[in-house]
Design a protein around this nucleic acid. Structure first.
Lengths: 152, 152
DNA sequence: TTACTAAATAGTATCTACTCCTATTTATGA
DNA sequence: TCATAAATAGGAGTAGATACTATTTAGTAA
């Protein structure tokens, strides 16, 4: 793909993003667009601080708090999402038998479950050729029973 | 299962744990055993602070730092593990196409990959009946190419 | 048993990721 | 252009985790 096409894609995505903001009643601020642009323009799964560094090159005075808030907003409107489980205090599991985790994004609780078809998945080939896979789980996120009943 | 059998299981697990410690050249301290016991005796995927609270009932003076160190040790020797992704600063992903994540437990980098058989997995029934599943991914952990070559 | 030594611990200080608060600025709709 | 609610900058506060140091202790060997 040529740079020219990349450029086009990016502009298209930004236009879509702005539309989505309007739909959700969110204002289109330079900071918001800059954060979105930085995030979509990378494949490194950056932390807020890393995004802050990138965006500062365009908007010198943007605060880390704004980047944090904006990233949360992006996740809320579905324009981005958080990498599985990150941002939570470390949680430990003493159960070594095969099982999978469901995490409630509202209250944070982790629920164990076992579902046979999720066991013994094949390793992907090619793409992760050089990687040593030590653990492989199906990870679900959503709302637990209690939090479904009483939406915040 | 009866309480009596539970008790038996626990003692058996502790015995195995002590054997494993000896194999790895780790000392068997009351603190270490108490942390292990607390973790194996619950299915709540506790944080270090939660474990600290539990263990304090037995060992009043145990420090939070010891609990933290011990939990890391348990994970290192394979007597427990950390719930997927937790304990990492929040990381964001602007790629909304279907894809999966591999995380290097050594350097922390997240690698995107796509592997067809991992898409369109069925939802588990029964166990998570009351939960609303919003996201479903296969999550791999291990060592990336660079970190495999130069083990710490 | 006793004495020795490296490992482990308690307690504290420090660091980092993140959120909260307040005054100021700004995007949007009238 | 004006009014106003939303968003922002900057800094204070908080929580989770790590680093440091002096002290204690488990395991070993006399």
């Amino acid at each position: 793909m040529h740079t020219h096409e990349h450029q086009f894609d990016l502009e298209k995505k930004i236009a879509e993003f702005e539309t989505r903001c309007r739909q959700k009643g969110l204002r289109i601020t330079p900071q918001r667009v800059a954060v979105y642009k930085a995030l979509v323009g990378t494949d490194t799964h950056p932390t807020a601080e890393e995004v802050h560094k990138m965006v500062r090159q365009d908007i010198h005075s943007i605060s880390l708090d704004t980047v944090n808030r904006t990233l949360l907003t992006l996740a809320e409107i579905g324009a981005a999402f958080q990498v599985e489980g990150t941002g939570q205090p470390r949680r430990y599991d003493g159960g070594l038998e095969n099982h999978q985790h469901f995490r409630c994004i509202s209250c944070g609780q982790i629920v164990d479950f076992h579902y046979d078809p999720y066991e013994n998945l094949h390793n992907p080939g090619q793409v992760l050729e050089n990687c040593t896979i030590l653990r492989k789980t199906v990870y679900l996120e959503g709302l637990c029973g209690e939090c479904s009943d009483t939406p915040a």
